[in-house]
Computed example of a mutant assay.
Amino acid sequence: MNLLNTIKPLVLGVIILFFTGCKSSKITSDGTANLSLSSKEVIKENSKTSPDFKTLQAKVKISYSQGNDSQSHTVSFRMLKDQIIWISSSFNIIRVKITPEKVSYYNKLDNTYFDGDFRFLSDILGTDLDFEKVQNLLLGNPLYELSKADYSMSVHNDKYLFQPKEQMALFELFYLISPIHFKMDSQQLAQPLEARFLQIDYIDYQQVDKESLPENIKIIVLETDKETVIEMAFKSVSLNQDLRYPFSIPSGFEEIVLK
């Protein structure tokens, strides 16, 4: 079994796992966008929803399909905010640990491991990533910081649509922000020259310790004529528990070197 084929759907799925949000008094009673809000006000409300916690853990079922290939995995997920993102599959067959310094994982099915920089994750999403950007995605924050000076806002299907005033040459970025909780309903990244498109939709939410967390998320990745769909369901979510993040590469495993 090839390690990259096994780990990519898991890592891509978990990259966009978690986000939180709060309702605002500025929302109309029927949950539609208040058209009197300025982009500055919406950006301010969005920034106020950034979650405040020390640790997070959950069980996540990830369903993955690409052409005739389909898989389903249940993983354990733990986060020590700003420091560690930790993932472990059933029976600890695959384990991942991400820190601000590096990305590490091993696979007991083929006795291989990787211990290196963020290039692997960057290749998956098609944009340069670091720990902060990965954590922003996990928490439902904008991948790139929102600012009134750099983004224009419009209302699209009763949601706030943000896009850079000057789209970048290599990719185009779009954010859809909910007028109810002011977190991302969708983040979309298009790379026309590479014929690649990534869409992350946050569908259902659940309340955990007064924080709003996703219950179901759907991710669509289009690359040339290939489509990958990842669906995730979250259970047993808890915050601020004492957690461990064990990770030790077994002896005798072969290192994976990315070309």
Score class of each variant (00 low, 15 high):
residue 36 S to L: 15
residue 14 V to D: 13
residue 68 N to T: 14
residue 58 A to S: 14
residue 18 F to W: 01
residue 99 T to L: 06
residue 55 T to G: 06
residue 21 G to T: 07
residue 17 L to G: 08
residue 58 A to E: 10
residue 20 T to E: 10
residue 76 S to V: 02
residue 91 F to S: 09
residue 62 I to F: 05
residue 102 K to A: 12
residue 16 I to W: 08
residue 45 E to P: 04
residue 107 N to R: 07
residue 36 S to Q: 14
residue 99 T to H: 08
residue 108 K to C: 02
residue 31 G to A: 10
residue 30 D to C: 05
residue 62 I to Y: 03
residue 31 G to L: 14
residue 92 N to C: 01
residue 12 L to P: 01
residue 98 I to G: 02
residue 86 W to R: 01
residue 8 K to E: 15
residue 72 S to Y: 00
residue 73 H to C: 03
residue 89 S to G: 06
residue 15 I to P: 00
residue 56 L to N: 05
residue 18 F to I: 09
residue 102 K to W: 06
residue 91 F to L: 12
residue 113 Y to K: 09
residue 113 Y to Q: 07
residue 70 S to I: 07
residue 68 N to A: 13
residue 36 S to C: 06
residue 66 Q to T: 09
residue 58 A to V: 08
residue 96 V to E: 01
residue 107 N to W: 03
residue 49 T to Q: 11
residue 84 I to C: 05
residue 92 N to P: 00
residue 31 G to M: 10
residue 94 I to K: 03
residue 72 S to L: 07
residue 76 S to R: 05
residue 39 S to K: 15
residue 107 N to G: 07
residue 10 L to N: 03
residue 82 D to N: 14
residue 75 V to M: 04
residue 33 A to V: 10
residue 109 L to D: 13
residue 58 A to L: 10
residue 109 L to R: 10
residue 113 Y to A: 07
residue 106 Y to A: 05
residue 87 I to T: 02
residue 64 Y to G: 08
residue 103 V to C: 04
residue 56 L to D: 05
residue 8 K to H: 09
residue 54 K to I: 08
residue 99 T to D: 03
residue 9 P to A: 10
residue 56 L to R: 04
residue 83 Q to H: 12
residue 111 N to G: 00
residue 60 V to C: 11
residue 44 K to P: 00
residue 102 K to T: 10
residue 20 T to D: 14
residue 104 S to M: 14
residue 109 L to I: 08
residue 73 H to G: 00
residue 63 S to H: 12
residue 60 V to G: 09
residue 56 L to T: 07
residue 48 K to M: 11
residue 25 S to W: 04
residue 45 E to Y: 13
residue 52 D to A: 10
residue 28 T to M: 08
residue 14 V to W: 00
residue 45 E to C: 03
residue 47 S to T: 13
